[in-house]
């Protein structure tokens, strides 16, 4: 039975039948590892993040990396064209990906991407929002919840000030952004289910 890769962090959804499972896995890790490192480098630059204990830094990153990657790679999901661009640079239509077995998760990603794009955030706003996403990740395993929540409050306050300054006539923008946090949590849960169901032979 042919297998396909649904994650656009792969070069392409088709698996070269000449490649072994190890080669396919290695190729994915070749994209995944630097992407995670970039998230860590980003986190290090969030004011106050390095003041958290090392344990809490690791646990926040473990819980929040996927959500940050969804924000960063949202533009790969073009809701208007209904295409997904894989890291190899080629676009694949929804119909093509469906025929390969793509699940409902794909629709949820398009929906998230479209709503985020429609907010028309600047680079600075997106960066601050991404910082909020990271520190709003699941708290399980966190030792000092108070410190993480204080950092989250500070960043949300800074985001509200920035959005209010830049979009004075669009008061709903900040609210819409905060509502993306539970959306991201749902996407994270859906993705975890996909990941657990995934087997490479």
């Amino acid at each position: 039975r042919r297998m396909y890769l649904g994650c656009p962090m792969n070069t392409a959804p088709n698996i070269d039948s000449q490649k072994s499972g190890h080669e396919v896995w290695d190729e994915f890790m070749h994209s995944f590892t630097p992407a995670v490192r970039e998230v860590v480098e980003f986190a290090k630059k969030i004011p106050g993040f390095r003041d958290l204990s090392q344990h809490d830094q690791v646990n926040l990153l473990k819980a929040g990396t996927f959500e940050v990657l969804v924000v960063r790679f949202a533009s790969l999901f073009d809701a208007k064209e209904r295409t997904v661009t894989f890291l190899g640079g080629k676009k694949y239509s929804v119909d093509t990906l469906r025929s390969m077995g793509a699940s409902e998760f794909l629709n949820s990603m398009f929906d998230f991407s479209e709503k985020l794009t429609n907010l028309g955030l600047s680079e600075e706003e997106m960066s601050l929002f991404t910082a909020v996403v990271l520190v709003s990740a699941d708290r399980s395993g966190i030792e000092n919840v108070n410190s993480v929540e204080a950092l989250q409050d500070t960043l949300i306050c800074a985001l509200r000030n920035l959005i209010t300054k830049n979009h004075p006539n669009e008061l709903a923008t900040f609210t819409k952004l905060l509502l993306k946090l539970p959306d991201l949590r749902s996407l994270n849960n859906m993705h975890s289910e996909q990941l657990l169901a995934f087997k490479i032979h």
Binding site: W25, V36, E41, V58, K62, T65, L196, K199, I200
Partner: peptide
């Protein structure tokens, strides 16, 4: 390969990146 969620080695990548492991970065 077992469970890909743990085989992704997320925690290991995060720890090394947090420590600024130069050797790992050069791979």
């Amino acid at each position: 390969f077992g469970d890909p969620a743990s085989n992704l080695g997320l925690e290991d990548i995060i720890r090394k990146a947090l420590m600024g492991n130069l050797e790992e970065r050069q791979e």
